[in-house]
Simulated scan of single mutants.
Amino acid sequence: MGESTKITVESTGSIENAMKVAFATKDMETINAHFGGAKEFVVYNLGREGFELSNVVKTDTSKLNGDDKTDFKVKALKGVNIMYCESIGGTAAAKVIRAGINPMKVPEPRKIEAVLNELVAMVNGNPPPWVKRIMNIETTEDPRLARWAAE
């Protein structure tokens, strides 16, 4: 059977309403692994104030077959809100989505820190409704609110 190890990192835990973002990686610095082939995922807490390393999830599915590998990885990522990877198959993506994780593909390897900085900027700008829901951000600046209130 496969092995999953979660390495928790000592952090301040000071980020309010943080969402968990995981990255499939081979080097802990770059999004450069396929979901199914990733042996580790680095997980960050991310909020308006910034981001901090939460933990590293190491997954070894070499002794598992077929769908068991995907199911194993999805269970190991429980609690993650967004997962970035280089690629992911359709069946695996469906399982990830059903588990409440939003899969995001990058067309080419990207530095994790750059993506984290972009996410912080997005959260502090006008994040999409699904991100607001995850982070418990009130929608106060949406021009549709006045229209909805009038209905």
Rank of each mutant, 00 (worst) to 15 (best):
M1N: 11
G2V: 06
G2T: 07
E3R: 13
E3W: 05
E3I: 11
T8Y: 15
V9W: 02
T12I: 02
T12M: 06
I15K: 03
I15S: 01
I15L: 15
E16S: 14
N17Q: 05
N17I: 04
A18W: 00
M19D: 02
V21P: 07
A22Y: 08
F23L: 02
T25L: 05
K26V: 04
K26A: 09
K26D: 11
M28N: 12
T30A: 03
T30M: 11
I31E: 09
H34C: 06
H34A: 00
H34M: 06
H34S: 10
F35E: 09
G36V: 07
G36I: 10
A38Q: 02
K39F: 04
V42M: 01
Y44S: 07
Y44H: 06
E49S: 14
E49Q: 10
G50E: 04
F51G: 14
E52C: 03
E52K: 03
L53V: 01
L53C: 02
N55T: 02
V56T: 14
V57W: 11
V57G: 02
V57Y: 08
D60V: 04
D60Y: 04
D60N: 14
T61S: 08
S62F: 04
N65M: 13
N65K: 15
G66C: 07
G66Y: 04
D71I: 04
F72S: 02
K73I: 14
V74A: 04
K75L: 11
A76C: 07
N81S: 13
I82L: 06
Y84E: 04
C85N: 13
E86S: 11
S87H: 10
I88Q: 10
G89M: 10
G89V: 06
G89Y: 05
T91R: 15
A92N: 09
A94C: 01
K95W: 15
K95D: 12
V96F: 14
G100E: 12
G100F: 14
I101N: 08
N102M: 15
K105W: 03
K105Q: 14
P107W: 00
P107S: 14
E108N: 13
K111H: 01
K111W: 00
I112C: 07
A114E: 05
V115R: 10
V115N: 06
V115T: 15
E118S: 08
G125K: 15
W130V: 11
K132H: 05
K132D: 08
R133P: 00
I137A: 01
I137K: 00
E138P: 01
E138S: 09
T139E: 15
E141R: 15
D142S: 10
L145Q: 09
L145G: 07
R147T: 12
R147F: 10
R147N: 03
R147I: 13
W148D: 06
A149S: 02
A149P: 00
